[in-house]
């Protein structure tokens, strides 16, 4: 059974149809890249999967580990192991990263009937995680994302992912706004989190992230549909020829 199976998914935002029938199957252990031009519906797909309000599913279904994902509240999806790394991580003034992440992890532990971590236990746990990924945990002392550089925000998302240990991670344009050094750091973190029981869907506009996070499969989205799928060579082909010829084919 696939970890994620999207069948003919249709969704609209503010009454406008954005997803027009997405089909995508992701097995545990795989990394899939979803590429496409701006406005093709990539971010909408990530928000629909995470359950954001205002993203109305009008048709199709999403099976996660064989269960209907769309029946679950956003927080239940997260507790069941879905993680969305945001394209634009949100600032939460006054809330230290540690506190935020402890609340998140404890919510998940509670959901699974496990004991919650107290502040001390959590600090130990998060330090170990950060170290294993070669990420600094300094930013956890600061309020969540407040005044963070683009690179810090994305590293923070990666660290959150490491702590929450998702089964399915959706990375929404994690490479946007990063210089090449920051990109490498984040990519190393993502690679370290690749695991046989974990799948990742990497949404990106450009091919360059895929030089570092090498995907098992590449899909091209255009106009609310997946118009082409292939292996990693498809990404290189896109880099060379652009999206135009695929868009023509889709139209």
């Amino acid at each position: 059974m696939a970890l994620l199976e999207i069948r003919d998914l249709q969704a609209e935002v503010d009454g406008k149809e954005i997803l027009k029938g997405i089909n995508l199957t992701v097995e545990a252990g795989e990394v899939h890249a979803v590429m496409g031009p701006n406005g093709s519906g990539k971010s909408t797909l990530s928000y629909v999967l995470a359950g954001r309000e205002g993203y109305e599913v009008t048709g199709g279904e999403v099976l996660y580990d064989g269960e209907n994902l769309l029946d679950l509240e956003p927080e239940e999806r997260a507790c069941e192991g879905l993680f969305l790394a945001f394209q634009y991580p949100v600032e939460i003034p006054g809330v230290a990263g540690t506190t935020f992440l402890r609340h998140a992890l404890n919510a998940k532990r509670k959901y699974h009937g496990e004991d919650e971590y107290d502040a001390m236990e959590f600090v130990k746990f998060v330090r170990a995680k950060a170290k294993s990924l070669n990420l600094s945990d300094d930013m956890l002392k600061r309020p969540v994302n407040v005044g963070f550089s683009g690179g810090e925000k994305k590293r923070n998302e990666t660290l959150q992912m490491a702590v929450l240990e998702p089964r399915l991670a959706v990375l929404d344009e994690t490479d946007s706004g990063l210089d090449i050094d920051a990109l490498k750091v984040v990519a190393d973190g993502v690679n370290a989190l690749r695991a046989p029981d974990r799948a990742m869907v990497v949404i990106t506009h450009y091919q360059r992230l895929l030089d570092y996070v090498v995907p098992d499969k590449v899909h091209v989205m255009a106009n609310g549909r997946i118009v082409k799928s292939g292996d990693k060579s498809l990404a290189l082909e896109l880099e060379e020829r652009g999206y135009a010829h695929l868009l023509d084919a889709a139209a």
Binding site: E73, I92, P93, V95, F100, A104, A107
Partner: peptide, 20 residues
């Protein structure tokens, strides 16, 4: 939504944001 997507309940999220 950022808090919900990390597994927190809406009430937990509001408590956290307000405490911040």
């Amino acid at each position: 939504f950022y808090c919900l997507s990390r597994g927190m309940s809406a009430e937990d999220a509001v408590g956290l944001i307000v405490n911040g």
